[in-house]
Design a protein around this nucleic acid. Structure first.
Length: 569
RNA sequence: GCCGUUGUAGCUCAAUGGACAGAGCAAUCCCGUCCUAAGGGAUAGGUUGGAGGUUCGAUUCCUCUCAACGGCGCCA
């Protein structure tokens, strides 16, 4: 890799000059006029030197002068390796590196091959978390899409990934739904999945409302809750039936989103273990308080939380303890990532702390990847007011929109392309945002097929496929060095950054970096396509090969976002 | 009350402590003999909520402040 080469040469230079070389790194300048890579090491070193020297003379004016002086010294020693066009000092002391065109061209073979991480690990990624008996809506979509993308990014860099889902199939929310089902009366078995899911949603809403408004109902529901934990036979039939309906309803959604879990964990399978472990650690990690068992987070700068209620039921927290053990049994990971909404930040801080006391071997291994909640542009989503957009609703609206556009095109409507483009639009509209801030979901905007969108990238890919189909011969295996046009050089420059963009996305847990990268690459390609004739041009072979390389990167990049690349659209 | 997150162009959002804060949408104008116009170009749009501080250099780090949202013992 060219970056590594520059970095190594630079570090050697620093060593020769007696400078510390550990903290040297290269960054990508925003503006291409500052080269392919840039280093601010001279600025850092100047700072070090001035703080080491006489403290009595710290005038800021001198600092820049000395940074440039240091840069000059480095430059002199560094010289100009043969793979570089030039190295120059700019601004207040940046050292900018310009790679030779011929090297950029050489580098562009197999641009989509990612360099594996030097230390690969086993990573459990837990995402999804839709509780049975509830509808899957656009809020849930964030954990699905983000989680799956993370899985793919980890895998692409050589890590082993275990895809886990964890669903709450026991607890008060289930008791509410069961109570609601009893009140509404069980419908016939012949209903389709969607209708069954709708019914369960209504039953939950009814239970939830009554629980808050009617103390008699509340008592009944609390009784059902305890009964479920105790596996009372008279509740089992209806519970198992409702549960199985709900799980059946989830399957096609996972399939639509392209998710294959290695395992789905359920609260019902972990709560007993969780409760036992909490009780075993009573007095050591946990303590009793007002009849409940709590973890005294306040002792650690956090807050207290109830792990077992005074009624003897493990809470969400208590179950998480059981889950921790069972998950690690299933897959002895080096790292586990819980892709869960930001509302749970406080919760995870406390629970992870408790887990580290109980299972010291899990210390520093568990992470909460927090993402912002999804609100509708009309306000907060609420199942009570019916102000909910389900995944199904969204998918159909977007498909309709894609069909509209396709109808006007020359290809006609192709169902498979509609599916791929609609999913591309949806997934991209989530992944182009950085995960943490809350997201305002605007239906009109999410179905947008132009601008910063999945279809924009897919279109660039499909365009290239079209060119490749129309070319009589296949691109050469090696690109030959030629005099480069501006647009060609821009593309080569961007191909150079693919690998490090993916690394950065993994490091930060921000797939949006890849999304931005793909948009820019597509934009550059579209401009190239506009300005540079490919077929039957003097540079046909080179441009075909360049197009091919771009398309490989687009395809791979989209794949990391969980998006397919259609050959035509 | 305590803890946390968020605040960037009219709207939706980017930006490992770096150089001139970038995109898309919306607006105005332009590009069709030719490989996919779901495309391309141009113009306009900003005191990065506010005030201090650290730094050669701050949207980014620190303090204070304003606003919105979230969390804080028997829900998940």
């Amino acid at each position: 890799m060219l970056r590594q080469r520059i970095l190594e040469d630079l570090k050697n230079t620093a060593k020769d000059l007696g400078y510390p070389s550990n903290d040297i790194f290269l960054s990508i300048p925003q503006n291409s006029s500052f080269g392919n890579y840039t280093s601010n090491m001279a600025l850092q070193l100047a700072k070090l030197e001035s703080s080491k020297g006489k403290q009595s003379v710290p005038p800021s004016a001198k600092q820049n002068g000395s940074a440039i002086k240091v840069a000059n010294k480095i430059l002199e020693k560094f010289g100009k390796p043969d793979y570089l066009e030039k190295v120059e000092i700019a601004g207040s002391g940046f050292i900018n590196f310009f790679i030779k065109d011929s090297e950029l061209v050489k580098n562009a073979n197999n641009s989509d091959i990612l360099q594996k991480s030097t230390k690969t690990s086993k990573v459990l990624i837990e995402y999804g978390h839709v509780n049975p008996l509830k509808e899957v809506h656009i809020g849930h979509l964030r954990t699905f899409i983000l989680g799956e993308s993370l899985c793919r990014i980890y895998e692409s860099l050589g890590h082993t990934v275990f895809r886990a889902n964890y669903q709450g199939d026991i607890g008060l929310h289930i008791a509410k739904a069961i109570w609601g089902i009893k009140k509404l009366g069980l419908p016939s078995q012949e209903l389709c999945l969607k209708k069954k899911a709708d019914f369960l949603g209504r039953a939950y809403a009814k239970g939830n409302k009554s629980y808050e408004e009617d103390s008699v109902c509340k008592k009944e529901i609390d009784k059902i809750n305890i009964g479920l934990y105790q596996k009372q036979p008279e509740l089992q039939e209806i519970y198992q039936l409702a549960r199985s309906w709900s799980l059946e309803y989830f399957e096609p959604i996972y399939e639509l989103l392209g998710i294959k879990y290695d395992r789905c964990f359920f609260e019902s399978e972990v709560f007993e273990t969780g409760k036992q472990i909490v009780l075993q650690n009573l007095g050591k990690v946990f303590k009793e308080s007002d009849g409940a068992i709590i973890f005294p987070g306040e002792k650690h700068g956090l807050h207290n939380r109830v792990f077992i209620t005074s009624a003897g039921n493990p809470t969400y927290e208590g179950k998480e303890i059981g889950l921790a053990e069972i998950e690690y049994d299933a897959f002895d990971y080096d790292k586990s990532i819980h892709v869960v909404a930001s509302e749970q930040e406080g919760y995870f801080q406390v629970v992870i702390k408790a887990i580290e006391f109980i299972f010291p071997y899990l210390k520093q291994k568990k992470y909460h990847l927090s993402y912002g909640v999804v609100d509708l542009s009309e306000g907060k989503m609420s199942s009570r007011t019916g102000n909910v957009v389900t995944v199904d609703d969204l998918y159909h609206v977007v498909c309709e929109k894609v069909r509209e556009v396709m109808e006007k095109g020359s290809l006609g409507i192709d169902q498979e392309v509609v599916r791929v483009v609609a999913l591309g639009a949806i997934k991209f509209s989530y992944l182009k945002f950085s995960p943490r801030p809350n997201m305002v979901f605007d239906l009109a905007q999410s179905v947008s097929l132009d601008g910063d969108s999945g279809p924009y990238v897919q279109y660039a890919f499909a365009r290239i496929q079209s060119v490749l189909r129309n070319s009589k011969k296949q691109p050469e295996a090696m690109i030959e060095t030629t005099v480069l046009d501006k647009q060609e050089r821009t593309l080569l420059r961007q191909l150079l950054y693919f690998s490090e963009t993916v690394e950065e996305a993994l490091k930060l847990g921000h797939p949006n970096l890849i999304a931005s990268y793909l948009i820019e690459l597509s934009r550059s390609y579209n401009l190239f396509y506009q300005e540079c004739r490919i077929l039957e041009s003097q540079k046909q072979d080179f441009r075909l090969k360049l197009s091919l390389e771009v398309s490989k990167v687009l395809k791979k990049g989209l794949n990391l976002l969980g998006i397919e690349a259609p050959d035509r659209m």
